[in-house]
Amino acid sequence: MKSVILGVVLLTMATGAMAADKLVNITKFEYGKQWAFTKEEVTLQCRKGNALFVLNNSTLMQYPLNDAAQVQVKTGQQRAQPLDVILLDDINNPGQKMSVEVFRARAEKLCVD
């Protein structure tokens, strides 16, 4: 019984912490040829300090999308994998990954709203 109560308390705390972050789901369908990710749907997130992350919806792993997010990862404030892990190769520029500028701009809007 104690473990159930503890689980409910932890879930409530985690939900409250997530509510402070701003999120938006985006899909490959919305972006067409600009789509840069290996997954068909991801979530963009603005966290404290204007740190922008991409979340893989199926694994909930996050990937830093800007310098502020990378700093948080390097200082141990956040756990994340490198962004290149979920980026597609750019077929028009061999040896390069797809640009994430359009997604970074969309995520930055979350920080303002």
Rank of each mutant, 00 (worst) to 15 (best):
V4L: 15
I5P: 10
L6I: 06
M13E: 14
M13V: 05
A14D: 10
A14M: 14
A14Y: 11
T15R: 04
A19V: 09
A19M: 08
A19S: 06
A20W: 05
A20D: 15
K22L: 11
K22I: 02
V24P: 07
V24K: 14
N25T: 02
N25K: 06
N25R: 01
K28F: 08
K28Q: 00
F29Q: 06
F29V: 13
F29C: 05
E30F: 02
E30Y: 02
Y31C: 13
G32N: 15
G32K: 05
K33E: 08
Q34N: 00
W35T: 04
W35L: 01
F37N: 12
F37Y: 13
T38V: 07
T38P: 15
K39F: 13
K39T: 09
K39N: 11
E40W: 13
V42M: 15
L44D: 01
L44K: 10
R47K: 12
R47N: 10
K48H: 15
K48V: 09
G49S: 08
L52V: 06
L52A: 01
N56G: 08
N56T: 15
N56Q: 11
N56Y: 11
N57G: 11
N57S: 12
T59N: 07
L60A: 03
M61Y: 00
Y63K: 06
L65P: 07
N66C: 08
N66S: 03
A68D: 00
Q72R: 00
V73Q: 09
V73R: 08
K74W: 00
Q77P: 04
Q78A: 08
A80E: 03
A80N: 04
Q81R: 00
Q81A: 03
P82W: 01
P82I: 00
L83N: 10
D84Y: 11
V85D: 09
I86Q: 05
L88Y: 12
D89S: 10
D89K: 13
D89G: 11
D90K: 13
I91P: 10
N93Q: 08
N93R: 14
N93Y: 10
G95D: 12
Q96E: 14
Q96D: 10
K97G: 12
K97H: 13
K97Q: 04
M98R: 04
M98K: 06
M98H: 07
V100D: 12
V100C: 13
E101W: 12
F103A: 05
R104A: 09
